[in-house]
Design a binder for these strands. Structure first.
Lengths: 168, 168
DNA sequence: CTTGGAATGTCAACAAGGCTGACTTATCCT
DNA sequence: AGGATAAGTCAGCCTTGTTGACATTCCAAG
């Protein structure tokens, strides 16, 4: 684990100049725009927005998650999430099941229709991601992930790791 | 230039699985939240928001830029930008100078007061960035930048490169 | 020298998606 | 029985994005 840059590059620390950091900041800004552009285009034709996409993504990723858990992953207020969730449930994309152990809880699942939308959104987003990964190569991708993880807040990092563990 | 993953990793392509791509997508989501968190905290105490930060950042980066140029960098409508710009000018953070060659154009500059706010915002953002870079190391940072650049839209990439050339 | 088009700015109206605060309902646990 | 927790809802507000219409100013081409 190379925590110290000197261990990798004798002459370095040049990558920590204000100018380099500024470029990194701008790269994040421009890349994030590309990152959301494709799903946004799909959503623009519907009555949904980016907030719906995020909810659908994380419900897909953690089927049966509770409202509270989703709330803390997304980092919004329950009123804000509720507005989104209500339309998704009304439109039959998300199903809300009363908890068996604790009947106060609602467990969220995508319906078939919801899973279809999730597919089309994540296909679009993954296509761009795949192209970027392929162009940059596996070593670059590993670095990409390392830096992103180091940029997260503690609590977000915890959520990220929890999701990660569910994966393949 | 390793465009082909096979050239770096004989067994690979595993980094292109849907699961890996999903994790990359989630990493972008969580990291971006961290990325904006510190300046957002500063701005919350004022009458400004993230849109003001973006305008200030790019005016600082390209002093004398025109409104039209800023418009295409930020990717918003002129009405949206104008609202932000107007308050910044009224509050004495940004100066708008009529063009010498083409008097229709307005060239934007930060005032001393504007530069001070820019400093405090970018200091906060760079501190986090620096910590992340330091933790990940120069090789990871290079990969981070490669993947981000590959994720950008063509026109955004052009803006990014133009800004890059002005740098040290 | 006039006129068309470009750059800028402004007004109005609207929508998405954040926020706070207050409150209800149902359920759980002590 | 009573306090704490999970969820949902109502009302109102803010920021930041959108469209559409329009005025002004100025350059440049005819």
């Amino acid at each position: 684990m190379p925590d110290n840059p000197m261990s990798q590059s004798g002459q370095s620390l040049l990558f920590l100049t204000d100018e380099q950091l500024r470029k990194g900041i701008e790269a994040m800004f421009f890349a994030y725009r590309g990152f959301t552009a494709d799903p946004d285009r799909i959503l623009a034709d519907m009555e949904y927005g980016r907030a719906h996409h995020r909810a659908i993504h994380f419900i897909h990723r953690s089927p049966g998650t509770t409202v509270n858990n989703l709330l803390s992953i997304l980092g919004v207020t329950k009123q804000s999430l509720n507005r989104v969730l209500r339309t998704l449930i009304e439109d039959g994309l998300v199903e809300s099941r009363i908890g068996k152990e604790d009947k106060r809880e609602r467990h969220l699942h995508l319906t078939v229709k919801g899973a279809e939308l999730e597919r089309s959104l994540s296909d679009a987003q993954r296509d761009r991601m795949r192209a970027a990964y392929r162009a940059a190569g596996p070593v670059a991708v590993a670095g990409f992930r390392q830096v992103l993880e180091a940029m997260m807040d503690q609590d977000l990092r915890r959520h990220f790791d929890t999701l990660k563990d569910r994966g393949a």
